[in-house]
């Protein structure tokens, strides 16, 4: 049975999650990339985001009549947001980050402090993500930031699979794997030279 979390997601919900867990989200999520992070830190949140998953994504969208439709929306590389994320989490308490590639130590520390998790959604799986979006509820700063960088508010149903790769207990699968790969690389290099 797949685990599904409904939004808003509470601090208690995320403190029970551990690195390696897989879950899906139902409810409201919002996108923010580099420029939207900067915008929110400068001007405040365009709508209340506490407990709503923050999705690192610049989608492909199309407008028919008054309604936007999201056609593809996989994650973008999260580490670009590392410089903003700790402040962002402390201020807006989003609780779940959805991205790819993992993030750095500053974010990892903020996850424990605030009570939040970083989850990995399959990079490039833009169509799968779009299938889980039942409605585009709105968009903020579209004029100022353009389609990929704007804040898109999405209604989702069983959005995932999301793998917890950085939890609120200080564990980062990215850091653990990096150590393992470094060991393997020593052996591989010896093999090449030998």
């Amino acid at each position: 049975m797949d685990k599904v979390l409904n939004t808003p997601i509470s601090e208690n919900d995320v403190r029970q999650l551990h690195a390696g867990d897989v879950f899906y989200v139902t409810g409201q999520i919002f996108t923010a990339r580099d420029e939207a992070h900067q915008m929110m830190l400068e001007h405040g949140e365009p709508f209340p985001v506490e407990g709503l998953p923050l999705f690192h994504c610049g989608p492909v969208v199309r407008k028919s009549g008054d309604q936007w439709e999201l056609l593809a929306g996989g994650p973008t590389t999260s580490v670009r947001m590392e410089q903003f994320e700790a402040d962002f989490l402390k201020r807006f308490r989003s609780r779940v980050i959805i991205g790819k590639g993992g993030m750095g130590e500053k974010t990892l520390a903020a996850l424990s402090e605030v009570g939040a998790v970083y989850t990995h959604f399959t990079g490039g799986a833009g169509a799968l993500a779009a299938q889980a979006v039942t409605k585009v509820e709105g968009v903020h700063w579209l004029e100022e930031l353009g389609i990929p960088e704007a804040v898109w508010v999405l209604q989702v149903e069983r959005f995932g699979p999301l793998v917890v790769t950085m939890d609120a207990h200080g564990r980062s699968l990215h850091a653990e794997l990096a150590a393992e790969v470094a060991e393997n690389m020593k052996r591989i290099k010896a093999q090449i030279v030998g």
Binding site: C57, V60, A72, G124, A125, G126, A127, L128, A130
Partner: peptide, 24 residues
């Protein structure tokens, strides 16, 4: 889990004639 999601994504894109990835 990643590869299953990738393969499901490929199927969804092909069936719906929508982009496989948002970065086209």
């Amino acid at each position: 889990v990643q590869l299953e999601a990738i393969l499901k994504n490929v199927e969804v894109a092909r069936d719906g004639a929508v982009p496989i990835c948002q970065d086209t």
